Simulated assay, not measured.
Amino acid sequence: MPEDLSLAALGLDVVPALRPLAYPGCPAPWPALLTGDELLPLGVRALPLGRWSVAGRALDDVLGERGQAPVGRRHPVIAVGSNASPAQVAYKLLRRGISAAVPMVPVTVRGIAVGCSAHIARAGYVAAAPYRADPAAETSLVVSWLDEEQFRAVDETEFPNYRRALITGDDSGLVLPSGEKLDGAYLYVSSFGILTEPGAGTPRPGGGPQATLLASLLKASPRLRDLLGPDPASWVRRAAADPAVRESGARVFGEESWVLRQPGFLPYAGGAAGL
Results as ranks from 00 to 15, higher is better:
residue 234 S to M: 12
residue 255 E to V: 07
residue 79 A to I: 08
residue 236 V to L: 11
residue 241 A to Q: 04
residue 164 R to S: 06
residue 120 I to N: 01
residue 256 E to P: 10
residue 249 G to Q: 00
residue 196 T to L: 07
residue 115 G to R: 07
residue 72 G to Q: 01
residue 63 L to V: 00
residue 257 S to N: 12
residue 172 S to Y: 07
residue 126 V to P: 03
residue 205 P to T: 12
residue 103 P to D: 03
residue 195 L to I: 11
residue 28 A to V: 10
residue 220 A to P: 05
residue 111 G to K: 00
residue 248 S to I: 03
residue 100 A to L: 06
residue 62 V to D: 07
residue 149 E to K: 15
residue 24 P to T: 00
residue 18 L to T: 12
residue 200 A to H: 14
residue 139 T to L: 00
residue 69 A to H: 00
residue 233 A to L: 13
residue 52 W to E: 11
residue 20 P to W: 00
residue 20 P to A: 01
residue 12 L to P: 10
residue 130 P to V: 10
residue 45 R to Q: 14
residue 120 I to F: 00
residue 47 L to C: 05
residue 17 A to N: 12
residue 37 D to R: 04
residue 48 P to D: 06
residue 45 R to M: 11
residue 34 L to N: 04
residue 247 E to T: 06
residue 261 R to A: 14
residue 166 L to I: 15
residue 105 V to I: 13
residue 30 W to Y: 15
residue 16 P to M: 10
residue 83 N to S: 02
residue 152 R to T: 04
residue 207 G to A: 11
residue 77 V to Y: 13
residue 76 P to F: 03
residue 26 C to R: 15
residue 133 A to L: 02
residue 133 A to P: 03
residue 261 R to C: 08
residue 72 G to Y: 01
residue 226 D to Y: 07
residue 107 V to C: 14
residue 222 P to R: 03
residue 247 E to I: 01
residue 27 P to H: 10
residue 245 V to K: 11
residue 146 L to R: 01
residue 136 A to P: 05
residue 11 G to P: 07
residue 161 N to H: 09
residue 238 R to A: 04
residue 143 V to F: 02
residue 187 L to M: 08
residue 150 Q to M: 13
residue 78 I to L: 14
residue 193 G to D: 08
residue 17 A to I: 12
residue 191 S to V: 02
residue 179 G to A: 04
residue 24 P to N: 06
residue 177 P to C: 13
residue 201 G to S: 08
residue 154 V to Q: 10
residue 254 G to D: 08
residue 45 R to C: 09
residue 109 V to N: 13
residue 46 A to F: 08
residue 181 K to D: 01
residue 191 S to I: 00
residue 169 G to P: 09
residue 266 L to H: 15
residue 113 A to W: 02
residue 105 V to S: 08
residue 56 G to C: 12
residue 240 A to E: 01
residue 209 P to L: 13
residue 128 A to T: 05
residue 42 L to I: 12
residue 226 D to C: 11
